[in-house]
Structures are given as structure tokens and as C-alpha cells.
Design a protein around this nucleic acid. Sequence first.
DNA 1: TGAAAACCTTGCCATAGCGCAACACTCTTA
DNA 2: TAAGAGTGTTGCGCTATGGCAAGGTTTTCA
Lengths: 189, 189
Amino acid sequence: MYDLLFKYFQSKVNIDQDQFDVLAPQFKRFDTKRNEFLLRRGEICKYNYFVNEGCLRFFTTNKEGQQMTRYFAFPGKFGTSLASFIELEPSFEYIQSVEQSQILAISRQDFFELVDSNPVINKIYRDILEMAYITSQKRIYGLQGDTALDRLKWLMEYQPKILSKLSNKVIASYLGVTPYTLSRLKTEL
Amino acid sequence: MYDLLFKYFQSKVNIDQDQFDVLAPQFKRFDTKRNEFLLRRGEICKYNYFVNEGCLRFFTTNKEGQQMTRYFAFPGKFGTSLASFIELEPSFEYIQSVEQSQILAISRQDFFELVDSNPVINKIYRDILEMAYITSQKRIYGLQGDTALDRLKWLMEYQPKILSKLSNKVIASYLGVTPYTLSRLKTEL
DNA sequence: TGAAAACCTTGCCATAGCGCAACACTCTTA
DNA sequence: TAAGAGTGTTGCGCTATGGCAAGGTTTTCA
């Protein structure tokens, strides 16, 4: 159950089995059904999630009710609604299980106690934040300056898993286009 | 010279003058002219910058050569080309001084030594990353789902300094529209 | 301080992407 | 296994934004 998480930690920092065994029990297992919500807008996000199997989608809706997807967490990735998780304020986004998934969740309090007390976890959290921020920067530039077709090509090259595993509807909501447009773009490839 | 930086640190964590005096000298002062580049695409970003006076702009260009702005650092803000700064890889973005500015810069090595050895700095860096990431998330959602007019209104409400201090050309490059469109949108407000 | 450069605005038309409607296809799940 | 819900495709017209051109205004700096 904790294999993937241990591998993840090892890939980031030096950590041995004993150190890991101390903190692993703080991660509780959740099993989710397809399309199940782990968090809805307006709720407080109490957990940081690690995906063991399946996929989580992080999205919000604009005033026309259209969904916009920010991030897909595949196996071996962390994800949370950070603003809510940090500040204990109502979340502006949803977290939904795209398919039947197995999730490890650590509570806010346990997580930040670890971050403050355990240099290994501190470093991992720093890494996650740095990488997530850099990814966001690139995505901002992509949304600002590339055409929808460019963004689709970028996705094919760098995130092929998204294209192969997910529905056109959610892919479109990630690219920032309508499903109509995505369908048309695919004929231009 | 270090007043603003000290205030910044105090606003984030408990720090007294003695603690601050130890680390302050690691920040070297740079004075920049209007439109001077601190970093060009392809160069390695060696410093983390703190703005004392003036303003720095962080941007890149797409393949048509249009500029896209990600962030403006006003007095009391940090900014760097993070991917390059962390990984020592060539930067994909530029850092330019919008106007005559006074900057405090700390080198990569000094910075990460502080982050690893000094809990106060570690916490500040964590805060910066968290806030920057949250801001990026909101910006991604804004670019994906709101019209250009919505984004302009958002800017007026939450970042009025950008509208009042900067040229239309760079504001447009931040909103992800052309200067033509921005000019037209302003008549619709 | 005055010429040159940069910037802002606006008319006009071009284009990318939107969104309805209709239909085909494909997963559920009872 | 059949009905229904959800998903993908495509024709058509619409809207938001892009981009050239031309003119007026502001800024820069020698």
C-alpha cells in the first residue's frame, strides 16, 4: 500500500525504511468511485492527497458554469487545493476522482507538523512547491501566447497520458477550449 | 537600504534586528536603469531579487515574437526566474527593469544555504512559494475561463497598481491581449 | 528644447474559437 | 441485453479578438 509513496520519497531525498515507517501511518487510505468528489467548492480542504492508483482532477467553474481544469494527479503525484489547505478558507475549486482510485491522504495538521519537524519532509514539500510553481508558470505562458492547436501539440508531446487516458470533455477543459473546438483541432493534426 | 527587507521578514516570521543583521549583508544592492535587462532568455539566473524601489517585469516571447508577461515585482516583493535559478538551466524568460529601480540580490548559493540552515528563511521561502503558486493557480483559471474584459476588471480591483503605473503595452501583455484590444476594452468599462 | 521615437486610439476587415442543433457512437447499469 | 445517459463529430452562423494602417499624443534624450 505504501510502496509508491516510499519510492516517491526515495526519489526526492535520502530516506531509509525505518524513517519512512514512522511517518507512513499518517497517510490514510481512501478508495473512491468514478466521478466521486473529494472536495467541493466552498468546503475546507483538510487533506493533502497522494494518488496510488487512478487519477484526480482539480477544477473550478466560471460564471457561465463551464468547467476549467488546472491539474490532473496521476499515480505517484500529490495534489490538494492549496489555498484552502493552507489558510483553512473555503476552496474555490473541486477535487474529483476521474476513475476508481486509491488515494493516500494526510491531514493538514499532521502534514505541517511533519514539514516543520522533519527536514526530509520539509525538503520534499519545498520540491513539490517549486515544481508546481514552475509548471504553473509554463502553463500561464502557454495559455497566454499559444494557439489552441499549439497547446494540444504541447500536450501530446509532454503529457501524452492525459490524451490517452481521459475523455475529450475534460481534456478540452484543461486546454481552455470547448469540446467542439478540441474535436475540430484533432482533425488538423 | 535594508528597511523594506527587514519589514518584509518581520511580516512573515518572528525575527529580531540581530538575526536580521547577520543575513542582510548577503543581499547586494543593484541599481538599474529603465528597461535594463537583469536576465535574458538563455542565460542562467544567478540571483533571487528583492525590489526596494521601482519595478521588475518577468516575461517571455512566443514564436511570433509577442511578449507575454507573467509577473510584476513591485517594492517589497521577491522575484526570480525560478526554474533557471533552481536547476541552473538556461532561463526561458527575461527579467527587465520597467523603470529606474533599486534591487537587492542574493546569490543562488547564499540563498539556498540560508534556506537549508536558517529556519526563519526556510519558512519565508515556503511562504513565498505557496503564495506564488496560489496566485498562479488563480491566474490560470482566469486566463482559461474569463473574457478579456473580465480579466481587466479583475486587474482593476485586485492589482490597481499595475493599471496606474504601467504602460498599456505591458498591461496588455499581462492580460494576454493585444494593445489594440486593451485600448478598445477600456472604452467599455 | 526640439526632433525622433515610442505609444495610444480607431476604422476596417480577417480569423479563431464558440455554441446550437442534429446525429452517431459507446458506455453504463438495471 | 436493452434503454438511457453521456460522449464525440460536424454544418452553420456568431462573437471576440487580432492586426494593418493612419493619425494624434506623449515621452525621451541629445
